[in-house]
């Protein structure tokens, strides 16, 4: 699918060393426009580190990342987010003390049209901008199914809903590509099923997705293509069925103990 589509994210020979530890070793892969690509591998394989490099939270020791032709080297995380490349975090990340609604409003930061003078003088532009943000926030909460929770404090939501909150925050940035780091870990099967639907909805709205996940049935279900990482190196790449039957992948996972797969 989409094999003719243009490459949006290209990762070229990226390495990350933490002192003596090689977390990522010469990683190279592409994601094309409109794809859902899975990035899998045992714990400690370097998946989150890869996300950190792509989104500017970590400088790679070597190599280059490009998004839509723009080299990301040296860009700050907020600048990369502004390019439309937006991530979620593996550890639940919401603005705990704010309400769900305030969280989304905060995520909509870049959509605001008012400048500091507008805010100080409460100009018409400020009021209109705020009203637009409120409407967009309501739409977004409806989109992810959190509209009933709007006035609740984000930090006291059940775990699964905090994960949804994290996705809503990322969507608020209007991403053209979304990086999801283990979004369904800790969710029950019903929640996972609902989340898969949401991912498909996001995908249909035209967002390219790179998904890190341990839930293999889910990965196999939603991904067009899968990249397998082990000890910082890519050991396989292909369609879900190719990956399922790849002896090296099976060995990597079996070698790590089956429960991790």
């Amino acid at each position: 699918m989409n094999s003719s589509a243009e490459t949006v994210l290209s990762i070229e020979n990226v390495s990350v060393h933490f002192g003596g530890l090689i977390a990522i070793d010469g990683m190279t892969f592409d994601v094309r426009s409109g794809e859902i690509v899975g990035l899998i591998g045992p714990n400690g394989a370097g998946k989150t580190t890869a996300f950190n490099v792509i989104t500017g939270f970590l400088r790679p020791t070597g190599g280059e990342v490009r998004y839509r032709g723009v080299p990301l080297n040296g860009l700050k995380p907020h600048e990369i987010a502004q390019l439309g490349l937006v991530r979620t975090f593996q550890r639940t990340s919401v603005f705990q003390e704010r309400t769900v609604f305030q969280n989304v409003l905060t995520g909509l930061h870049r959509s605001g049209r008012s400048n500091l003078w507008d805010m100080l003088l409460r100009t018409r532009r400020e009021k209109e901008s705020e009203r637009e943000l409120v409407e967009t926030a309501q739409d977004l909460l409806r989109f992810v199914g959190l509209e009933q929770r709007a006035s609740e404090q984000a930090g006291v939501l059940p775990y699964g809903e905090q994960r949804l909150m994290g996705v809503a925050l990322a969507l608020a940035v209007k991403p053209s590509m979304l990086l999801l780091d283990e979004p369904v870990s800790g969710m029950n099967p019903a929640e996972t099923a609902r989340f898969v639907k949401l991912v498909e909805k996001i995908h249909h709205s035209g967002v390219t997705i790179l998904l890190v996940e341990h839930d293999m049935p889910m990965v196999m279900e939603v991904c067009d293509r899968i990249v397998v990482l082990n000890y910082g190196r890519i050991i396989a790449e292909g369609t879900p069925s190719e990956i399922q039957n790849n002896p090296e992948v099976i060995r990597a996972y079996l070698g790590q103990g089956k429960k991790r797969a």
Binding site: P77, H78, F89, V94, F95, T106, A170
Partner: peptide
């Protein structure tokens, strides 16, 4: 509250 999260939404 959460600097990394703030940066990740483009702030």
């Amino acid at each position: 509250e959460n600097e990394s999260l703030a940066m990740s939404v483009g702030i």
